[in-house]
Nucleic acid binder design. Structure first.
Length: 377
DNA sequence: AACCGAGTCAACCGCGCAACT
DNA sequence: AAGTTGCGCGGTTGACTCGGT
């Protein structure tokens, strides 16, 4: 019963790694990779270490794609924003800071950022001003419940996104290239650029629903230059098909939710057909799938997706520099009367978002300013 | 020069969860 | 179903460095 017995309790080395040990680990991973078992790796690599220690050394130090040195201002902002939303979930934060390790981010937070925020009178746990005086200095009154609600949405989204990244990383490693044409199953998506088969995790649609809802609620976080915002519109007439079917009016309207889900299912069908038809497509780092606008139009036309109107195609085929606000405007213009009566369109959410947006900008501006005089830096 | 305290960061520890049998 | 194991995560530790006295 159970797995094979755990490691023999031999005396394993602890403490700092020597260059020789590093070399052994590097050489082994370069030759064999570490996919399989960390536990079995040390013996095979000739190391008197436990697998856990090897894994840590690789992830935090030896990995070739690690960026070292000072954190940039942008990175600092990202950490602060994400920490405000996620708390001490360093692994989730790490997925948005490529080339940094969770250990490094954790250390940097504990030794630098936490202290600096505290100095500024901001509680590093809640990310809110500690005193009324500072609050008034920022010049905003805060709707704590609303902010909390926003954070919950965004936090859940980011966590799901992080999960996506992890899943796709594993799949990119475990699925060899050049096989996708003959092995496509329901959950697999070929990427012509890389030749790899990416997975479409089950949580994707829910995630994208959140994306759409949150983006709509908050007028797209691009204004914040949020590194977490994934609802972007590139310039080359590509469209993020994963966003299809979920528009800004998703929240606060049950019948509309149902409508959106129905539309999503229809478009999901089209997505499958486009994939099977082998149209031009690619995926981005966040797992979103991008199609050529022309391909989408052609395929939609060719496949005559039932119930998918030209308006729907127009809705999802926006191109160019549209951005979030543009997207919202166009979406609204193509909706029926019920949609236009939603809370979003009467500005209820926008007002709150403006407040929150200003709140974040204030903190970050204050933080940026502090970086210039802070003795810590 | 010696001591001391603060800061930094690599590495360890313990836990929870998922996978495995 | 239940016991066992591996992995990943977050918290913590301790060795080392550096500046001040």
């Amino acid at each position: 019963m159970g797995r094979s017995p755990c490691c023999e309790k031999v005396a394993l080395k602890k403490g700092p790694w020597t260059p020789e040990e590093d070399q052994k680990l590097l050489a082994y991973i370069e030759q064999h990779g570490h996919i399989g078992s960390w536990r079995a790796l040390p013996a095979k690599a000739g190391l008197q270490r436990c697998g856990k220690s090897c894994r840590l050394r690789w992830i935090n130090y030896l990995r070739p794609d690690i960026k070292r040195g000072k954190f940039s201002l942008q990175e600092e902002q990202t950490i602060i924003q994400l920490h405000a939303l996620l708390g001490n979930r360093w692994s989730a934060i790490t997925t948005h800071l490529p080339k940094r390790t969770d250990n490094e981010i954790k250390n940097y937070w504990n030794t630098h950022l936490k202290k600096r925020l505290t100095k500024m009178g901001i509680d590093p746990v809640t990310h809110k001003p500690k005193t009324n005086a500072l609050g008034s200095a920022i010049g905003q009154t805060r709707d704590a419940a609303n902010l909390s609600h926003m954070a919950q949405w965004e936090s859940t989204r980011i966590e799901a996104e992080a999960r996506l990244v992890r899943e796709s990383k594993v799949l990119l490693v475990t699925n060899p290239p050049s096989q996708y044409h003959h092995q496509l199953s329901g959950g697999q998506i070929p990427n012509k650029a890389t030749g790899f088969v990416a997975s479409r995790p089950q949580c994707l649609e829910v995630l994208k629903a959140w994306q759409g809802a949150v983006s709509g609620m908050f007028g797209i976080a691009r204004d914040l230059e949020s590194p977490t915002s994934t609802l972007n519109f590139p310039e080359n007439n590509m469209l993020a098909i994963s966003n299809l079917g979920f528009n800004e009016n998703f929240v606060g309207n049950n019948s509309l939710q149902a409508s959106c889900f129905e539309k999503s299912n229809q478009i999901q069908g089209l997505k499958e057909k486009i994939i099977l038809d082998d149209h031009e497509m690619t995926t981005d780092q966040g797992g979103a799938i991008w199609f050529q606008e022309s391909s989408f139009r052609t395929s939609a036309h060719e496949n005559n997706i039932e119930g998918l109107s030209e308006d729907d195609v127009m809705l999802v085929c926006e191109s160019g520099d549209g951005g979030g606000h543009h997207h919202q405007q166009q979406s609204s213009s193509s909706m029926d009367g019920e949609d236009q009566n939603s809370d979003i369109n009467n500005g209820a959410y926008n007002v709150n978002f403006e407040d929150n947006k200003n709140y974040w900008n204030s903190i970050l501006n204050l933080f940026n300013a502090s970086a210039t005089w802070s003795p810590v830096f």
